[in-house]
Design a protein around this nucleic acid. Structure first.
Lengths: 325, 325
DNA sequence: GGAGGGGCGGACAACGTTGTCAAGCAGGTG
DNA sequence: CACCTGCTTGACAACGTTGTCCGCCCCTCC
């Protein structure tokens, strides 16, 4: 900028004014400055600007894994809102490790991001307190923060979706419905289990529940166990997208009534099409980002908690009658 | 940092030394400084550090769309390498718009990223010249830069993959093989068309080629046109993952011999399983990031051009005989 | 006891930008 | 002609960090 100023024969500040489109610069002078800028290929140093102004125009996003379609969709939606507000997005995958989550958040904060969107991997968010007090805006998405932390949150209607899935299977005559889901330490998994249990009421049987991380081998073994029971399940409810796919693969084209949580590409092309309770990851990302920018533009009201609806999509697998194995 | 210094009763510089682990500080003093840091919840302002040192420890990634599984996989791999080097990742989706690509690159450069990985959307990369001269390291992935720009590049063996796919179909008795692909203005689409054409040799028939953006309606119409020909195709070769899925959907479970470029989740669960020529997006991201860090650690040799192999995966659809429609 | 040296701590400038404040200048008005 | 006003421009400090350089203190050795 100094070079531009001397090339244009003006003061530093005048160049700054031109670069920032501030008023009060003679059009002719501004033109001369712009010419010098082009000539020298100058581009403003954002680090210095940040240092001076305090605003980084950067948002941090911590998710579990960008390579997971759910989070990829969420990311893209967040990115669109962020760009629209003239900001950039720093993103990182926690890989479901609380330590990594914390590291990412702290690194983002050291870079003075204006706001954070976090899909938490762990339960302990006390490390966020100093940041919150320092005025960093934070929004949690998909999973809530630990109880003591009071920030804007966007969740899906996990329990309601599970109830809807189970009700659908009950309506098709099933009484023995198994649940295959993630470790209940994960909030969404626990919520879906709750919905499943509530909807089943007296039909609930703990032997029909299998919750662990979705390895192909593990799921296969669990299916063997379930179908080996005296009173085996006639229908399956799978607790997330990856679980649904792993289960379908383990079933090896056996036709079993099944409803999955989360939609996934090609669910409609399988035979039968896979009925699912669909979330809208893009909407979740969009809402989270909008809540964040609402805070950034000065809203200091009480924290908001948004619950997004889910939708049952009927494609065939959920409508198979009992006894079709 | 100033507050920490006065709280610990030392000079600014001493705090700086402790924070950076520089030698020459009495252990006891360092301990006092660390206590003050914890007490005040201090975290170093990276912007100021960048301003002073010039290194941002940030890499920019421009892709087409994070929500596309191919780029999501690539992103994740880039992210892993970047984190391993103690850096962060700024990413943005160009949405296949050259203007957006340019904007993203320029914004990243204004933030003084140490390096850039670009999946270009456009053909004109002259805007990169000043950045390259300014010493920003750049790697192109998936598609090459315009001819005049000489930078490290990672491409898949697009033409070879297409040849392999076509050869596979020829080996199964097909002589009328249609190609459905993206606009040949896109490098990868053009290369795949070239491979298709070369492998077919005299069997090549321009009426069997359909290249446009993959809308559901468009693909349906093209299939109608192709199958309405006097001498209709007996097999399809689809030019990328999205095209393959759109085509499968348009086929409405008609059984047609098909090989797709790009692997996709659930390809194995469809009936028949979809044979594909698979790229490895994670490997591409990893190689691109490693090339970049190689440059950043001082390699000034001639630009490198890596071609990644592709792999034919046989699952059933590519092995259907002619006349099975 | 004094000189020399090593270990440690501190003062200061600089990175590139922007906010504050004031100066210069032309034109209009009393 | 003096004064005021409004427009344009510029000088300077400050943001928080790090690199350079200097000085102090204590120890050791002569």
């Amino acid at each position: 900028m100094k070079d531009v100023a001397s090339a244009a024969g003006v003061a530093l500040k005048t160049v700054s004014r031109v670069v920032n489109g501030e008023p009060g610069v003679h059009p002719e002078t501004a033109e001369r400055v712009r010419a010098a800028i082009d000539l020298l290929g100058y581009s403003r140093n954002e680090s210095a600007r940040v240092l001076r102004s305090g605003r980084t125009a950067t948002i941090g996003l911590v998710i579990e894994d960008v390579a997971d379609p759910f989070y990829a969709g969420l990311s893209r939606a967040v990115e669109d809102v962020v760009i629209e507000h003239g900001c950039l997005l720093l993103s990182g995958s926690s890989g479901e490790e609380p330590g990594r989550e914390r590291e990412l958040v702290e690194t983002f904060c050291a870079r003075r991001v204006d706001g954070l969107i976090v899909v938490p991997a762990g339960d302990d968010h006390s490390y966020l307190r100093p940041e919150l007090e320092a005025g960093t805006a934070v929004v949690f998405a998909d999973r809530p923060p630990e109880p003591g932390i009071d920030v804007d949150t966007v969740l899906a209607d996990n329990a309601g979706g599970a109830r809807r899935a189970v009700r659908h299977l009950l309506e098709h005559g099933h009484r023995r419905i198994a649940f295959l889901g993630d470790d209940p330490a994960i909030f969404t998994a626990a919520e879906r289990l709750r919905g499943y249990r509530e909807e089943l009421g007296e039909l609930f049987d703990p032997r029909l529940v299998s919750m662990r991380s979705p390895s192909a081998v593990g799921v296969r073994a669990e299916l063997d166990r379930l179908f080996g029971l005296d009173d085996p399940p006639t229908a399956l409810f799978t607790g997330n997208g990856r679980y649904t796919v792993t289960t379908l693969r383990a079933l090896e084209r056996r036709r079993v009534a099944l409803v999955g949580f989360d939609d996934f590409e090609l669910a409609d092309l399988l035979d039968p099409g896979v009925s699912v309770v669909a979330q809208d990851p893009a909407r979740m990302g969009q809402v989270a980002a909008e809540l964040l920018f609402h805070r950034l533009t000065g809203d200091a009201g009480p924290s908001q908690h948004v619950e997004l609806p889910v939708q049952l999509i009927i494609r065939g697998s959920g409508e198979l009658p009992a006894g079709s194995i």
